[in-house]
Amino acid sequence: MISDGIALGLLFLFQTGFGALGNSFLLGLYTITFFTGPRLRPIDLLLCHLAFANDLVLLSKGIPQIMATLGLTNFLDDVGCKLVFYFHRVARDLSLCTTCLLSSFQAFTLSPRSSWWENFKARSPKYIVPLFLSCWTFNLLKNCLILLYMKGPKGSNNITGINDFIYCSATFHVSPYILLYILLFSLPDVLYVGIMVGTSGYIVFVLYRHHQRVQYLHGNSLKPNGFPEARATQTVLLLIILFVSFYCLNSILLLCIRYGKTFSWLVHSSAFLAACFPACSSFVLIVSDSQVQKYSLALWEKMMLQF
């Protein structure tokens, strides 16, 4: 009979490997297409960056979690714990920031010509790279305090205000300054999620209105799910529902870990939920984005011509 530790290890191994495979495929596809294939769309830069950030999230969280579930709880020292949690948090915030930019860029792209942001829409591709640099700079600075509070699993025993993450720990002494920092720390996340919900709702509204306008052209020969607008709407809804659901559930578990008694199942559940969106989002895009399929087909044809 398989032990609980081995079962959890296999679960995290499958999640990390499955997600890393999908994100690495997208990252490699966009990179190869950039150098050898057709010209990429501006939105492809966002998708490529999202795939890279999601790969960092999965590797920085999945590999340590796999080792911890197999009983290896002392494989990191203080410096290792600081770096692992710091880069995971930076990668996680980059994924959140990029998803927000992707949702906003889609809203700009689909906005009607009569919209007030038509002029901005024409210039928006020029802002993508500066926005990437801003996201990196902001998130690298924002998470610096993690380097102070994260500790190794050994040197933190018998300390009050400790949060145990199985293979690492953190000391958070409750004080007005810490509470203020946590509040300020959470504000960008709330803002990103709010923007994503708002822009996604706007995208659904635009697609629905467009569907109503062209419905008479389709006639009654197609099912509702067969309309291109309906498929695009379902993709947007699926991405936003996946992200917001996993984000909210993981945030609740993190609050329980930080302010309540820590249980190993809470830590494992939080780690699993934190990696669900990075693991699933790449395959949602691969299946739903026809341009990804076009790039894949062009790359396959070039490979076949070389043999």
Rank of each mutant, 00 (worst) to 15 (best):
L8W: 14
G9Q: 00
G17D: 06
G19V: 04
A20M: 12
F25G: 01
L27S: 05
L29P: 00
T31D: 06
I32A: 14
I32W: 13
T33G: 01
T33H: 01
R41W: 12
L47E: 00
F52T: 03
F52E: 04
A53D: 00
N54D: 13
S60E: 02
S60H: 10
I63D: 00
T69S: 07
L70M: 13
L70H: 05
N74F: 02
N74T: 15
N74C: 10
L76S: 09
V79L: 13
C81V: 10
C81E: 09
Y86P: 08
F87M: 05
V90H: 01
A91Y: 02
A91K: 02
D93V: 03
S95T: 12
T98P: 04
C100P: 00
L102I: 12
S115G: 14
W117Y: 13
E118G: 02
S124L: 15
Y127W: 14
P130S: 01
L131C: 12
F132Q: 03
L133T: 02
C135Y: 06
N143R: 03
L145H: 13
M150I: 10
K151F: 05
G152I: 06
P153V: 00
K154L: 13
S156Q: 04
I159M: 11
T160R: 10
I162E: 12
N163K: 14
H173K: 14
I178C: 07
I178L: 15
L180F: 12
Y181G: 10
I182F: 13
Y202G: 02
I203H: 04
L207R: 08
R209I: 06
H210E: 15
Y216D: 10
N225G: 07
E229Q: 15
A230S: 15
R231A: 11
R231T: 05
T235Y: 11
T235G: 11
I241T: 14
I241P: 01
F243P: 00
N250P: 02
L253P: 01
S264Y: 06
L266Y: 08
V267H: 05
V267D: 01
L273W: 04
C276P: 00
C276L: 11
F277R: 00
P278H: 04
C280W: 03
S281K: 02
F283M: 09
V284S: 06
D289N: 12
Q293E: 07
M303D: 07
